[in-house]
């Protein structure tokens, strides 16, 4: 029972961590509270549904399509909405309100096109695998494998490569980065593409596992944002750690209390962290004058 619980928490944590890392890429670099990231998630799930069920594409291609759709949508949002605001020097509040508007408009467009009801991508009983006394469906195994490959690679990439340093540099001090010759707009487009693709990946896998409705994006986005704060804003390993922690806590809630209290307790965790450790688990040491900001 405990092992099964851990396994479910792991699967859940993998998806939260993917979403949280994608969100962190965008948030850390642009400082935009990108709520519409949740809409990119939803759009990916629905495109996957469209390709798989309506157009009868093979599974793998449908997932690729969903991921590409999310990336495209993310970049479009940056080019059409955020970049003009950034050039104007608009405040963070303005980007946030725009993002809320984008989220509402996109999600309702999806609901208009596909209907409000829950959709299942894999009707029937999924084949399961048994491993060390734990039962997982094949999709769940795929979720773990994808996360196990992508997460360490990405975190290492961001830590070690020049690209990762550029992204961290832009996050630390965008003006200095630009003055040194970095094309901020190109970096922003890149992080929107990569971050949204990660959301798309999490969305397609989760949709294959448990289905979706037009409203799925928001709770997933919020959980990712909580994972980012719990793990440590400004880092890239933080959201991954936070994601797994939340995954475990959530499956513990499902087991011990009731699935209905998941959201309440997730945000309870957030409030606890805001009170006692607002810098998160993994955040680096800072000088005082920085943390005051």
């Amino acid at each position: 029972m405990l092992l099964q619980l851990l396994a479910n928490g792991l699967v859940n944590g993998c998806m939260i961590a993917l979403m949280a890392l994608g969100y962190a890429l965008i948030y850390n670099t642009t400082r935009i509270f990108h709520v519409a990231h949740g809409a990119a998630y939803t759009a990916a799930a629905y495109l996957c549904y469209l390709l798989l069920i309506v157009f009868k594409w093979p599974l793998l291609l449908a997932v690729v399509g969903g991921v590409a759709a999310a990336a495209l949508l993310g970049v479009t949002m940056e080019l059409a909405v955020y970049a003009p605001l950034y050039r104007r020097g608009a405040s963070d509040l303005i980007s946030l309100i725009s993002s809320l508007g984008l989220y509402v408009a996109l999600v309702n467009l999806i609901a208009l096109l596909f209907g409000n009801e829950t959709k299942v991508l894999r009707p029937g009983v999924e084949k399961t695998c048994r491993l060390l006394g734990v039962i997982l469906t094949r999709i769940q195994v795929a979720e773990v494998v994808v996360a196990a490959v992508l997460l360490p690679l990405l975190v290492l990439f961001l830590k070690r490569t020049l690209w990762g340093k550029i992204i961290r540099g832009v996050r630390d001090n965008p003006v200095l980065a630009e003055v040194l010759g970095i094309d901020l707009m190109a970096v922003r487009i890149a992080v929107f593409a990569a971050g949204s693709a990660l959301a798309g990946m999490a969305a397609c896998l989760t949709a294959l596992d448990v289905g979706m409705d037009p409203q799925v994006g928001m709770p997933v986005l919020l959980t990712a944002a909580v994972a980012l704060i719990v793990g440590g804003v400004g880092t890239f390993e933080g959201p991954v750690i936070g994601g797994f922690l939340l995954g475990l806590i959530q499956s513990l809630i499902v087991w011990k209390i009731s699935a209905q209290w998941t959201d309440v307790i997730t945000f309870g965790v957030l409030i606890v962290f805001l009170v006692f450790r607002p810098e998160g688990i993994a955040s680096r040491r800072r000088r005082l004058e920085e943390s005051a900001a």
């Binding site: 340093k165 550029i166 961290r168 540099g169 001090n173 040194l180 970095i182 920085e290």
Partner: peptide
């Protein structure tokens, strides 16, 4: 830039690497 702007999370080596690559 006035005031000694740096990237707080990067090391000296990273700064030099980033500076040359960016330019």
């Amino acid at each position: 830039i006035q005031g000694g702007a740096v990237f707080p999370s990067l090391s000296v080596g990273d700064h030099l690497e980033l500076g040359r690559a960016a330019a």
